[in-house]
């Protein structure tokens, strides 16, 4: 990476901070809204500094949104689905990226087609299918459709990053007598660590926030997920803004944690030595 002069470093910090402030402004309003009373918000205006501070929104959100149960469900589905989905996608992406075979383009096109499919048209057929399989209204009933829906993007991303791995590395491994499985596990996956972390972040977020499929496929309280709980913040005729935003803040904690944990794999040069062989 190029070195910066001192004044450049300062300029960069200033620009980055201004951009950060703009990006953060709506977030600040979310926090402000979450820690005040609805009456204060409505009277003093939504952008004013909170005058009547209250953490009641958090308490109510936790209780109304049934976070004690729904958090468990969301964590269960996320920690199983995300690794499993990325595993399945990366397995499929390896041949699509690195092998030459006749059906390759057709298969890739088929997987790619999925990114253009609007979720809503798959809901009815899938709920009929899940019902036949006895998986409707279970977490397993979310597991498989979630994987299917994530595959197109993940295969596209994995295929792209796997392609940047030099063929020479793979050829050398073949000569050493490595099996395809070993090459995938010991060469491809470790080299694609930054990409896999990026996918992990993206997919964890998508899974954690997924709403429509969970809404249609799950109706029992005991299997609902966090995004469904947030529906309970709204009454028929009006909404409590502090409760909604407090609930939102509670709900995004795991996603932020995952992000902060995984972004450390974005360290430049980590693969440099490996590629040189």
């Amino acid at each position: 990476m190029t070195q910066l002069k001192t004044w450049e470093r300062w300029a960069l910090y200033i620009v980055l901070t201004i951009v950060a402030a703009i990006f953060l402004f709506p977030f600040v309003i979310v926090v402000f809204t979450a820690i005040r009373t609805q009456g204060d918000l409505m009277r003093s205006g939504v952008f004013s500094l909170p005058r009547e501070l209250s953490l009641d929104g958090f308490r109510q959100a936790w209780y109304l949104g049934r976070f004690n149960v729904y958090y468990r469900n969301s964590i269960l589905i996320s920690v199983t689905k995300v690794p499993a989905g990325i595993l399945v996608a990366s397995l499929a992406a390896y041949p699509l990226a690195k092998w030459n075979f006749r059906a390759r383009d057709t298969l890739f096109l088929m997987f790619l087609a999925g990114i253009g499919v609007p979720l809503h048209v798959t809901l009815l057929p899938n709920s009929i299918l899940l019902k036949k399989m006895g998986l409707l209204d279970t977490l397993a009933g979310l597991f498989f459709p979630y994987i299917a829906y994530g595959l197109p993007l993940q295969i596209l991303v994995c295929r792209g990053f796997f392609r940047t791995i030099p063929d020479e590395l793979i050829d050398a491994a073949y000569i050493d007598g490595c099996s395809d499985g070993r090459i995938y596990w010991n060469i491809i996956l470790p080299l694609a660590k930054p990409a896999i972390s990026a996918l992990f972040i993206i997919d964890f977020l998508a899974t954690w926030n997924e709403f429509m499929m969970a809404l249609i496929f799950v109706h029992s309280d005991k299997w609902k997920t966090v995004p469904l709980g947030m529906m309970y913040f709204q009454g028929q005729f009006s909404a409590s803004y502090p409760v909604i935003n407090a609930g939102v803040l509670i709900s995004i904690v795991p996603v932020l944690l995952i992000y902060i944990m995984l972004q450390r794999y974005f360290v430049s040069g980590i693969t440099a030595g490996a590629i040189k062989g």
Binding site: T80, T138, L139, A140, W223
Partner: peptide, 16 residues
């Protein structure tokens, strides 16, 4: 870990 989690999901899915 992954397979343990998978089993857990399946076990929990059995209707009470």
């Amino acid at each position: 870990q992954l397979s343990v989690c998978l089993l857990l999901v399946l076990a929990l899915s059995i209707q009470a």
